[in-house]
Amino acid sequence: MIFKFANPLKFQRFTKQIQPFALSLSIIFLFFGLFFGFFRSPPDYLQGETVRIMYIHVPCAWFSLMIYSVIAMCSIFSIAFKHTLADIISRSCAPIGACFTLATLVTGSIWGKPTWGTWWVWDARLTSELILLIFYISLIIINNAYENKEKGDRYAAILAIIGIINLPIIKWSVDWWSTLHQPASISKLSSPSIDNSMLVPLFIMTFSLFFFFISVLLLRIRGEIIQRKIDVIKFSHVR
């Protein structure tokens, strides 16, 4: 199965075939998710109608972490086997992950204004999400900082590997720090039991965003492969 795509041209064709399916699945799920979220789920007894932003906010937060783990796995693969596809995937994942993280932060603070009364709290979750955003940004920067594309890929992979081990430590210490600075009452965002009528639109939205992620990723991978081919052709003609 893997060997079938051990060829950039075949993989490019494959992405071209799969991408419309993913995009249309994403749009269908988005339609149903928004419908259930807006009209078929009850308002929260405490927060009222504002709780509906959860259907965007929570999946985005999940994906911001998931995409980082994808990048981390690709980086290990790229350091160990020096496979170009791993480099391409991690390079195209980083901006998408940064966008999901930014969306999480923005929707979170929009949600926070009516419920907590402020746009921003130095809470453990918010702070570690912000650090994740900074991390994505530094990955994007280092991907493009070097004149040589291969070098940028390699250094970004090294940075991501430092990140895998250090991000849990940073998260843990930020948790500790925030409990030190203020009581932990605020961070009771998610009540432990969610009713099914809220859970269904949440999962539908998660699927929608997942297929959206897949379709954008395939698009970016295709663009990256074409860009690299152009580079090779340029270099082969200029002596």
Partner: peptide, 26 residues
């Protein structure tokens, strides 16, 4: 990391400063 950056040496600060967070907290 910054050894081969010819243009923009400030990048090294952006890259590595997040890792100082635990140390500075404790």
């Amino acid at each position: 990391f910054s050894m081969q950056l010819k243009r923009n040496k400030i990048i090294q600060f952006i890259i590595i400063l997040p890792f100082y967070i635990p140390i500075i907290i404790f």
